[in-house]
Design a protein around this nucleic acid. Structure first.
Lengths: 102, 102
DNA sequence: TTTATATATGAATGTTTATTCATATATTCA
DNA sequence: TGAATATATGAATAAACATTCATATATAAA
């Protein structure tokens, strides 16, 4: 793995990127969407949280280009939109499971 | 890459883990330490921030077992203490550089 | 066109958290 | 032992942010 040089702007952006993963609601949304696309209500039910809270978080992930969506009638289906998201999620998960010897 | 099952506790811990990367000061510390161990003052000078602010952040990273340190006289040298930290940093960096077409 | 359903969003609230300031601790040197 | 240097830490402050509530928008169905 070659080390790439990162300037101040890169590092700021990098921390902003990781911030998206640093919230348990968003992490749980990402984990759920690893199975494939899901509607807003399906996500809210799965997480046992209000629709509004989920919509707010989806907005954040969508604006970060981590999610895309498609509309089908009244329903909007969200899906993961970045291979890196899966990879980073997976690597982080491996880390904590390994650290815990699971 | 095999998908591992994650329960609620795992996901909460995972988001806590990513939180460490989701702050520009901590990300800059991690980036600086990729070169090798550095003293607290060296870090503070490099980031152009106060010693106290750096100490507080080092404490957080140390308690998360992302850093270790050794003492040499009055000076304490910190270093990265986890291969995953490097990997995740690198993967995240590749992500944002790629997205920007850099 | 009224009603019902799915989603989005602005404002308010409460909580978390990064930094600063003042001070404490630890080590070295005179 | 006293002064100087490196680091740590508690308390205070300010900024960021997640959730809730109320409401808006969009689509479909009656």
């Amino acid at each position: 793995m070659k080390k790439k040089k990162a300037d101040l702007k890169d590092l700021f952006e990098l921390s902003e990127f990781f911030k998206f993963f640093g919230d348990s609601t968003r992490i749980r949304i990402i984990e759920f969407l690893r199975q494939g696309e899901q509607s807003v209500l399906a996500i809210a039910n799965y997480l046992e949280m209000g629709q509004s809270a989920i919509s707010h978080q989806l907005r954040i992930l969508r604006m970060a280009n981590l999610l895309t969506f498609r509309r089908e009638g009244k329903t909007i289906y969200y899906r993961l939109d970045d291979e890196h998201v899966e990879k980073i999620f997976q690597l982080g998960l491996e880390h904590i499971l390994h650290k815990r010897g699971k």
